[in-house]
């Protein structure tokens, strides 16, 4: 097993889940309606749980304990894509991000169900089942609001245009693509991106929204290498604030 390649893969997935989970949790108490408040809070709980399980796999590969990697690393050591660290903005942006990101995650964990690294394959099987509820939720609202009123459609269209370059950053290539594929750990970002495009097109085609030509979108990269926007550090400061008061405290 190629441990450096596997470690890189697990870190970027775990960091994505943690950071987006945290952003989702920021909707708690602020949702546009109670049911959406509950939905984003539930998805936050799922995603933070997924990150913990992935950090646990990393811990078994020799990395520090989950709480330490989650709460004590500086921004430059996080490997999440920039997309997930962007502030929630208005609900239309959060919804578009939820749709674009979770569509990719459902496919990623579907691919990983066949991973040659058995602990990851088992976890992916489980997470995939849970993520189906996330994409069901996203697709339902995209279809509903994407065909509703002039305001809902134009808001979503505007957010979609803003979000797409960042969404392509999800698929920033790893330095280990070849090794991961050769060892059967993960088929790779390219395969994932292909399938993602098809699924995104399929849902958007059922709405009044339009997608630009894919080759006109310049991906926002860097997150996977620890190069982040100015939004990540304040998020980490807030997220780890309590833990850092006393890292040895028993909870």
């Amino acid at each position: 097993m190629n441990t450096p390649a596997l470690t890189e893969l697990l870190f970027k997935m775990a960091d994505d889940q943690l950071i987006l989970g945290h952003r989702n949790s920021e909707w708690t108490g602020f949702g546009p309606l109670l049911e959406e408040d509950i939905a984003f809070s539930s998805m936050a709980q799922d995603k933070v749980g997924h990150s913990q399980a992935l950090y646990e796999l990393l811990h078994n590969l020799g990395q520090p304990a989950p709480d330490e990697v989650a709460f004590l690393r500086p921004a430059g050591q996080f490997h999440n894509c920039i997309f997930v660290e962007l502030p929630n903005g208005e609900y239309d942006f959060s919804l578009i991000r939820h749709f674009l990101y979770d569509t990719a995650e459902l496919i990623r964990f579907d691919l990983l169900r066949k991973s040659s690294y058995e602990p990851l394959a088992q976890l992916a099987h489980k997470i995939h089942g849970e993520l189906r509820y996330h994409t069901l939720h996203a697709n339902t609202w995209i279809k509903q609001l994407g065909t509703a009123t002039e305001e809902s459609i134009s808001r979503l269209q505007h957010s979609l245009a803003f979000a797409l370059p960042y969404a392509l950053g999800i698929f920033e290539r790893s330095p280990w693509e070849k090794e991961l594929a050769a060892d059967g750990i993960f088929e790779g970002e390219e395969v994932l991106q292909e399938r993602w495009r098809t699924n995104v097109e399929e849902v958007i085609s059922q709405t009044d929204l339009t997608l630009p030509a894919w080759n006109t979108i310049a991906p926002v990269l860097g997150g996977r290498q620890g190069k982040h926007s100015e939004h990540l550090s304040p998020l980490l400061d807030e997220m780890g604030e309590v833990f850092r008061i006393d890292p040895t405290a028993s909870w």
């Binding site: 049911e35 509950i38 939905a39 809070s41 799922d46 509820y133 939720h137």
Partner: peptide, 13 residues
């Protein structure tokens, strides 16, 4: 179905 998410992770409304 009102919401695929409920008061706990395992419940829908």
């Amino acid at each position: 179905l009102k919401n695929v998410f409920g008061p706990t992770l395992c419940r829908s409304i």
